[in-house]
Computed example of a mutant assay.
Amino acid sequence: MIDALPIVPASVAKAHAVQDRVAALLGEAIGGFKAGAPPDGEPTRGLIYERTIRSSPARMSPAEVPHLGVEGEIAFRFTRDLPATGAPYTREEVALAVTVLPAIEIVSGRYSNPRGRPNLEQLADCTINGGLVFGPETADWSHLDLPNLRITMLVNGATVHHKQGGHPTGDPLGAAVALANMLSDGVKAGHIVTTGSWTGMDFLKPGDRCVVRFEALGEAEVVFE
């Protein structure tokens, strides 16, 4: 781990460039993204390395993800390529190109105190993403009111979150649309995008088991051992 970058990136584009350069230097294959589309801000994305994306139930070592943060999220998997075309993809086009998955984003950074760094420095660190655990895919989800699904998070069998709705912008699909229109080379079939925490951020301990359950979608589970 490091304490900080020598220079804080001056823009979202520069923070994205740091992500890309680090992944290239490490030889990391990219399996997905975390995407943010704030209504009053610039869209962002964080790379998720392929080796850190795991199907539920999953195990992750505290040595891999020492900060042990968890967030309950809805993710989408692209079922076909959406290449960059010069014209933005519509919500309808993206909706027809994705399945839906319940997910746990694993939050763990490369800084000793990642949440204490400036936002652009966190973005350069893939928005302190440590991995992603995904549950079953739902292909036919057009009838679901995604922003208003009920979510439950359990840690070691005890309920720590239980509520209806909770996505930070109220529009999970909007983040997937933003990603499809953000990437210079488009998105590829098989890529996963996770779209923002419904539960805030909880930090667990070695040995803990976390389950995130979305109404109508199923659940994702991770054990830190």
Score class of each variant (00 low, 15 high):
Leu204Ala: 07
Ala176Ile: 13
Ala220Ser: 12
Arg54Gly: 01
Glu93Trp: 11
Leu154Thr: 14
Val223Gly: 09
Leu25Arg: 15
Asp81Gln: 09
Ala17Gly: 13
Gly72Asp: 10
Ile106Gln: 02
Pro39Gln: 09
Val12Glu: 08
Ser56Gly: 03
Leu5Asp: 05
Thr195Ala: 02
Arg110Lys: 07
Ala13Pro: 10
Ala176Tyr: 10
Pro6Val: 10
Ser56Arg: 13
Val18Cys: 09
Ile151His: 13
Pro57Thr: 09
Ala13Leu: 07
Arg110Ser: 01
Val18Met: 09
Leu96His: 10
Met1Trp: 13
Glu121Ala: 10
Asp40Val: 04
Asn181Tyr: 10
Lys163Trp: 09
Gly72Phe: 00
Asn119Arg: 14
Cys210Ala: 15
Ile106Phe: 06
Leu26Pro: 06
Gly174Tyr: 12
Thr90Asn: 08
Pro102Phe: 01
Val177Ala: 05
Ser11Val: 08
Met201Val: 12
Gly218Thr: 09
Pro136Phe: 11
Pro88Tyr: 14
Asp81Val: 06
Glu73Phe: 04
Ala29Tyr: 05
Val98Arg: 02
Leu179Ile: 08
Val94Gly: 00
His162Cys: 07
Asp3Cys: 03
Ala216Lys: 13
Ser184Phe: 06
Thr169Trp: 04
Ala24Pro: 08
Asn181Pro: 06
Glu92Phe: 08
Ala58His: 10
Leu5Lys: 03
Pro88Ser: 05
Val100Glu: 03
Leu101Asn: 12
Phe214Leu: 13
Gly69Val: 01
Thr52Gly: 00
Pro57Glu: 06
Val98Ile: 07
Ser11His: 04
Trp198Ser: 10
Ala175Tyr: 04
Gly174Thr: 07
Ser184Arg: 15
Glu71Arg: 00
Gly186Tyr: 10
Thr99Trp: 01
Pro9His: 12
Asp145His: 12
Thr199Asp: 10
Asn148Trp: 00
Gly69Trp: 00
Pro118Ser: 01
Met201Arg: 11
Ala35Asp: 05
Ala24Ser: 13
Leu68Asn: 00
Thr159Glu: 15
Gly174Gln: 12
Ser197Asn: 01
Pro6Cys: 04
Gly116Pro: 02
Ile30Asn: 06
Leu5Phe: 12
Glu225Gln: 14
Phe78Tyr: 15
Arg150Phe: 09
Asp145Glu: 14
Met153Lys: 02
Arg209Ser: 14
Gly27Leu: 06
Arg59Glu: 14
Glu219Pro: 01
Ala189Gln: 15
Gly218Phe: 12
Ile53Trp: 06
Pro39Cys: 07
Ala220Asp: 08
Val107Met: 03
Gly200Asn: 04
Pro206Val: 08
Leu82Gly: 03
Arg54Tyr: 08
Ile7Leu: 12
Gly135Pro: 04
Val98Trp: 02
Lys14Ile: 10
Glu28His: 10
Trp141His: 15
Leu26Ser: 08
Gln19Asn: 08
Pro57Cys: 11
Ala124Asn: 04
Ala63Cys: 05
Phe203Met: 14
Pro43Gly: 03
Ile53Asn: 01
Ser108Asp: 15
Asp171Leu: 03
Val223Gln: 11
Gly200Pro: 04
Asn181Leu: 14
Thr44Leu: 00
Gly131Val: 05
Ala95Leu: 05
Thr99Leu: 07
Arg54His: 13
Arg59Ala: 15
Ala103Asn: 05
Tyr111Leu: 00
Lys14Asp: 15
Pro118Gly: 03
Arg80Phe: 01
Phe33Asp: 00
Thr195Asn: 05
Thr79Asn: 10
Pro57Ala: 10
His16Glu: 12
